[in-house]
Amino acid sequence: MKQVMSVTSNERYAELFDSLVRVSKGLNKVSSLQDMAAFLQIETDKLFRLTDVWIYIVDVKHKGWINHVAGVGPNADVMSGYVPRIDCNTDPIFKMMLGQRKIFYTEDLMVEPQADHDVTPKLNLRTVVNYPLFVDAKALGVMAFGSFGKKVVKLSPLELNYFDIITEQTALTVSRMHFFDKSQQDHLTKLSNRYGLEKKLRNLRDDKNKTNSKFCFIYIDLNNFKQINDSHGHLAGDHILAQFSLNLAKEFRSADIISRVGGDEFVLVFSVPEQGFEVQRFIHRIEDNCCSIKYQNISFQLTFAWGHVVAEGKDHSVSELFQVADKNMYQLKHAQIKINKLKTP
């Protein structure tokens, strides 16, 4: 078994202190719980080799339950799939954390006596640092950091103190983000809505202004979606939209933004590397990996029109990006209609 050892020293103290400064500044800028998890994952992977971060938030309808709401890392799908929610009334670890407001750290969850050994081997989860999130004595949920596979991480008291220090600010950020998430999140797909997209775009433009780099704004409109609702009902339509959104989120984890801005309209935003951006490659990925959806033994193959614009952060306002991409999308859609008419016998 390979151990990753952390060494306490003056140099280590400086590394932790510098990270705490970055965390203090960075948490004030994140605009969603997923962004927050991604930001903290970069810090804790670099410092401790804790590769994954996930967040559970209290379920207001079911007392004592917490729900998985965000996760980042190579094992994010594993966590959300196997442990979508936790009953803190019966789980001794989470009951202790929320009841006594204590951090839970175990070097190896596989041999932890209080762990659920029906689930832990399936996760292959090893080192875990969990801490409860409280604001004004009110429990918000749990923040968790972990390593998987053969990687066991031994943390010193100084390093564990790092998590003590970020607990309060993390809780305040979760409180702020959980409130704003509701106004910036599409209720059906859990993607950003139009308002959330605009806010994230403004933040992205501000960052791009500093580096003068570019981003690509892709606007997608599903074809003939009204016919699905009319022929199969709105429950089928809702299921297809939710599944298409989930497929986009899984396929494009590298995207800066994924959002649903209308009934069947979506926007993806990507940072553009210096060597250029092949938008057609991303369109093919959507067609190949996101558009085949089943509902009640019925297979649906979605098609869509799309338009895009590549711009420097300072070049366009949010509304201008929408206008240019929307214009390009409908030009393409009009061209598709012409082609289909030409093919009709």
Rank of each mutant, 00 (worst) to 15 (best):
M1H: 14
Q3G: 12
V4H: 13
M5H: 02
S6H: 05
V7F: 04
S9H: 01
E15A: 09
D18R: 14
D18Q: 15
S19R: 04
S24D: 08
S24F: 02
K25Q: 10
K25D: 10
V30T: 15
A37V: 15
A38I: 02
L40D: 05
Q41K: 10
I42Q: 05
R49I: 06
W54A: 15
I55P: 08
I57L: 15
D59R: 13
K61I: 04
G64E: 01
W65F: 14
N67W: 02
G73K: 03
V78E: 06
S80N: 06
Y82D: 06
N89S: 05
N89L: 11
I93T: 10
F94A: 04
M96F: 01
R101E: 13
E107P: 13
L109F: 06
E112Q: 02
E112T: 00
P113F: 01
L125A: 02
T127A: 02
N130I: 00
P132F: 01
K138T: 09
L140K: 14
V142W: 10
M143L: 13
A144I: 06
A144R: 00
G146R: 03
F148D: 14
F148M: 14
G149V: 07
G149D: 07
G149R: 08
V152N: 12
K154Q: 15
L158F: 14
N161V: 12
F163N: 13
F163L: 11
I165A: 09
I166S: 09
E168S: 09
A171T: 07
L172C: 12
S175A: 13
H178I: 07
S183K: 14
Q184H: 14
Q185K: 13
T189F: 11
K190A: 13
N193K: 12
G196S: 14
G196P: 11
E198Q: 13
E198Y: 03
K199G: 09
K200M: 12
R202C: 09
L204I: 01
D206V: 00
N209Y: 04
K210T: 05
N212V: 10
S213G: 01
S213Q: 10
I218W: 01
D221G: 00
D221P: 00
L222V: 02
N224P: 00
K226P: 03
I228S: 05
D230S: 07
H232S: 08
L241I: 15
L241D: 09
A242Q: 13
A242V: 06
K250Y: 12
K250N: 15
R253Q: 11
R253I: 06
S254R: 12
V261P: 01
G263D: 12
D264T: 03
D264A: 07
E265V: 03
F266A: 09
V267E: 10
L268D: 04
V269T: 11
V269E: 02
S271I: 03
V272M: 04
F277G: 03
E278T: 05
R281V: 10
F282W: 07
F282S: 13
D288S: 14
C291H: 03
S292N: 14
K294G: 10
F300Q: 07
Q301R: 15
L302Y: 00
F304N: 03
V310T: 06
V310D: 03
E312P: 00
D315S: 08
S317L: 11
L321G: 04
L321E: 08
V324T: 09
D326P: 02
K327M: 03
N328E: 12
A335H: 10
Q336A: 07
